[in-house]
Design a protein around this nucleic acid. Structure first.
Length: 722
RNA sequence: GCGCGAUUAGCUCAGUUGGUAGAGCAACCCAUUUACACUGGGAAGGUCGCAGGUUCAAGUCCUGCAUCGCGCACCA
């Protein structure tokens, strides 16, 4: 027996070596797998943002995906797992901007586009290297030869091709619409990048002027200088007489022309039953305005300040303007009521700034527009729905179907242009011939110096939406694309179901006429032992995966993230839990020590069949367990499979079977001894194979000393059934 | 407002088609060069959130409620 078994198992001494051996073997790359690996099985790594380091959530994701990949590899599939990182446009740029401002006191425009992009690229490269190191530490059996980045050359080609195709289909359009403006980040953001926070607010009920016949209520009096109408329900007896009339009022130094319109969107029972319509600063009001042909007057600018056309509040910040308007209303006896209330306020996910709805010319993807697909007409929304409804794509756990459909029901056109510099520049060029504007959309710049490219960049989710196929070489017709698309599984957190998963379905259906993956496996969020979200602002609550790996090993870290956690459920993790599984790695180590010592020079005989009656019973038992856990893994019950293996290994195989073996090996007949030795070797080897997806390092290290002919590496051993 | 989830031992959670409640960790008692103290054995611990219903039988199915968490919408 190898002397290494005389000491306790030491993960830090072992793991890096083993990882290197795997890399050297080439088996992470499906092209190098032995002949029997025929059927493709592919997963693409949800690319971590290059904004820093990986956290426990990423560790859980890596563990789950590596388990699936290793399991399938052992079962003889041609497994491909593609790594990559995400440039994460806004997130990365704002992070670097913040640092520069802190250190040098400079803002983005002080530095300039080119220099800022330089700095961001340097930062992104560093983050990338850190992330790659962390992914390796977790033991991920991922194909580094196919690594991708959402902003690299190949992906840029994919992005531009996708943009062009969707533009030609009429699905990408440029329009002047009310968008969500982030005054701090100085950019547009999509509906999904908004975070709602509940804050106390005041509702003011007032009249524009003494002789205006209808009272209205608002939480934002400062926007009222941009009102062009009052909307009432068309059948509201109180106001019907006024519908169609226009009133001119002097409101806080601004002359407003307020038309009374009848619109069924107004709930007569709510508030005063009348709504002041501000078409430039509310998308609902903009809808009303478009139905009645009302004028839109912008009164707030990109810096959340009042514009020059706003009378007594001009140039004030929004909140100051609000106070001043309320004061003015009081002075003029127009304020009727002031009530305390709670309001869901929209803030930008990245900067925390309060969102200012503004009218702006932006690029959108039309989700409700019919377009030709083969011989039928469909909308992107319909495609997204049918992919899941017709069970072409299965979501695990199933309950997220409802969440998915609910989101699609409420989906509006997706605003894809951003006023930031880091990202895919919009592949659109403009030329002004003095009179008319010409526009060019394409994958490369048009000839001629007079063409100017759009200043904006694309929402980062536009490029990640292409991820399952852009990583396989699309738009080229590659062999990879043919073989590995659609992916078998997409594994990711439920928190990006809308951001990412839904958009991949949208993009793939639209551009490739197929689904991006067959199964969506959603994992939960990793929380602290107290159930709080781990956050950078509270480092003491954070558990760093690298730290855990250093102290307890990657195998223990992986198990702690798997056991006790079903799909879609949040997971509470504590250091104690990780520690507990370190003991397990050592337990197998010692089991091996015992088995190898006890069997002396016995080797595994491939077709050994002369088992004793007692050992036949034991073999039936382990066979039953293997078929159960195989079934569990196939159905994504990884937590159950891991737990069952853990339990059998420790409390059945070690505690009971090894104990009784001592007696048999001491005083049994020669046949009984031989049978038991073979049983121990066979079972240990079976356990190593089946445990390998969960705890790859220690099992691979032990495997080296198993007395098996033509052993090979454990990573490509054969799963015990089929 | 609509929807989702959770509620089971001190803690974290299993309990897959209904058949006498399970695991890990912690705590308690015993054992001490035993393959392994990163150990073994033992005992203790739960009216399965509450109230109804279906059933021979409900932690599991149905209805209602409560508490906590989450998503979406509304937000005049």
């Amino acid at each position: 027996m190898n002397e290494k078994f005389l000491k306790p198992y030491n993960p830090t001494e072992t793991e890096d070596n083993i990882y290197k051996e795997w890399i050297d073997s080439g088996y992470f790359n499906p092209d190098n797998l032995p002949e029997r690996h025929k059927t493709p099985y592919s997963i693409v790594l949800p690319p971590p943002n290059v904004t820093g380091t990986l956290h426990m959530g990423h560790a859980a994701m890596l563990a789950i995906e590596d388990i699936l990949i290793r399991y399938k590899r052992l079962r003889g599939y041609k497994t491909l797992w593609i790594p990559g990182t995400d440039h994460a446009a806004i997130a990365t740029q704002s992070k670097v901007e913040k640092e520069i401002e802190k250190k040098e006191g400079k803002r983005r425009h002080d530095i300039g586009r080119e220099e800022l992009l330089n700095r961001i690229n340097i930062f992104a490269q560093q983050s990338h290297d850190t992330i790659v190191g962390q992914v390796k530490k977790m033991g991920a059996s991922i194909d580094w030869s196919r690594e991708a980045f959402t902003l690299d050359e190949k992906r840029t080609k994919a992005v531009r091709t996708a943009f062009k195709m969707m533009y030609d289909l009429g699905l990408i359009y440029r329009g002047n619409r009310i968008i969500n403006w982030d005054p701090k980040g100085q950019t547009t953001i999509s509906d999904d990048e908004i975070v709602y926070t509940e804050r106390p607010t005041k509702i003011y009920t007032f009249k524009y002027s003494k002789d205006f016949p209808i009272s209205i209520a608002t939480t934002r009096p400062e926007t009222k200088v941009g009102d062009t109408a009052v909307a009432v329900h068309p059948e509201d007896a109180r106001y019907m007489a006024y519908i169609g009339k226009t009133f001119e009022v002097d409101f806080a130094g601004v002359i407003l022309k307020i038309k009374v319109v009848g619109d069924i969107a107004v709930d007569p029972a709510y508030g005063t039953g009348a709504v002041g319509v501000t078409p430039a600063h509310s998308s609902i009001d903009a809808d009303i305005a478009s139905r009645h042909g009302l004028q839109s007057i912008q009164v707030i600018n990109e810096f959340a300040k009042m514009m020059p056309n706003t009378g007594i509040v001009k140039d004030l910040k929004v909140l100051e303007a609000r106070e001043k308007i309320v004061e003015w209303l009081k002075e003029n006896n127009l304020l009727e009521k002031e009530e305390e209330s709670l309001q869901n306020i929209s803030t930008a996910e990245r900067t925390g700034a309060v969102i200012e709805p503004l009218p702006k010319l932006q690029w959108f993807i039309a989700v409700n527009k019919k377009f030709k697909k083969g011989d039928r007409e469909v909308t992107l929304k319909e495609l997204m729905i049918s992919a899941v409804k017709d069970e072409k794509i299965k979501i695990v756990p199933e309950r997220f179907d409802k969440t998915y459909f609910n989101w699609i029901d409420n989906l509006r056109d997706w605003c894809i242009s951003r006023q930031i510099w880091y990202g895919h520049r919009i592949p659109v060029w403009y030329k002004n011939n003095g009179k008319t504007d010409e526009i060019f959309v394409g994958t490369d710049a048009p000839e001629g110096l007079e063409w100017k490219q759009d200043e904006d960049t694309l929402d980062t989710w536009f490029s990640s939406g292409l991820w399952t196929f852009s990583t396989l070489g699309w738009p080229e017709k590659t062999k990879d694309l043919e073989e590995y698309h659609p992916n078998a599984v997409l594994e990711t957190g439920y928190d990006i179901l809308f951001f990412w998963v839904a958009r991949m379905i949208l993009m793939t259906e639209c551009l490739l006429d197929t689904i991006p993956f067959k199964t969506i496996y959603l994992h939960g969020l990793v929380r602290t032992a107290k159930g709080e979200k781990m956050s950078k602002s509270k480092p003491e609550t954070n558990i760093d995966p690298l730290d855990m790996i250093k102290k307890y090993g990657a195998d223990a870290t992986r198990l702690s993230l798997i056991i006790g956690n079903g799909p879609g459920n949040d997971l509470k993790i504590s250091e104690d839990k990780v520690k507990g599984y370190k003991h397990f790695a050592n337990k197998i180590w010692n089991i091996t020590r015992f088995v190898l010592t006890s069997v002396e020079n016995e080797k595994i005989e491939k077709d050994f069949s002369k088992y004793s009656i007692k050992d036949i019973e034991l073999i039936k038992e382990i066979d039953g367990i293997i078929s159960e856990i195989t079934n569990d893994i196939e159905n994504f019950r990884l937590y159950l499979a891991a737990e069952k293996l853990y339990h059998y290994t420790w409390h059945r195989f070690a505690d009971i079977i090894l104990e009784e073996s001592k007696e048999i090996l001491k005083s049994g007949s020669d046949e009984e001894k031989k049978s038991r030795k073979q049983f121990l070797l066979h079972t240990l080897s079976t356990l190593l194979i089946t445990l390998h997806p969960f705890i790859p390092y220690v099992t691979e290290e032990i495997w080296k000393d198993m007395p098996i002919e033509n052993r090979g590496m454990l990573i490509i051993a054969q799963w015990p059934i089929k």
